[in-house]
């Protein structure tokens, strides 16, 4: 299995080498296609892992159920890393940094309930102390 992926990557890099010199745009298109194909290949296994994680987190029912938020944040981080690295490879450092910032903001937006719960616990804790 891993050999198949390794072979595909090596072939893709060979394609990049050929196209990088005079046709940089095709190299980028090829890169996008390779990363997309690789992720499509890996995602079913990732889905199984996520289902396992959700089942485990359902059984261990602590009072805060943040597993959905965790999975959503993982998805955002995955896509953010994908596009950010593609931008970096294409040489667009500024765009990559801005996109990373946008992804971080979105992740924080999704994590607002977690912060609310944390704030609730802390304030309750402080009230008990005083």
């Amino acid at each position: 299995m891993i050999l198949k992926i390794a072979g595909a990557c090596l072939i893709a890099v060979l394609g990049f080498m050929l196209l990088k010199k005079d046709r940089a745009d095709f190299a980028f298109v090829l890169e996008v296609c390779t990363t997309a194909g690789l992720l499509l290949f890996i995602l079913p296994y990732m889905e199984n892992l996520i289902d396992l994680f959700l089942q485990v987190s359902d059984t261990v029912k602590i009072n805060f159920d943040f597993s959905e938020i965790l999975v959503k944040v993982c998805g955002i981080a995955l896509v953010a890393r994908l596009v950010c690295e593609l931008c970096k490879d294409a040489g667009e450092q500024a765009l990559a940094v801005k996109f990373e910032l946008a992804a971080k903001v979105l992740i924080l937006i999704n994590a607002v309930p977690v912060f609310k719960a944390l704030y609730g616990i802390l304030s309750a804790f402080v009230e008990n102390l005083l």
Partner: peptide, 21 residues
């Protein structure tokens, strides 16, 4: 599954490069 797409795109790229030359 995605191997042939890689080949096709690389082929298109090389053809365009040669054509431009």
């Amino acid at each position: 599954m995605e191997i042939d797409v890689i080949f096709k795109i690389a082929a298109v790229g090389i053809i365009v490069a040669v054509l431009n030359q």
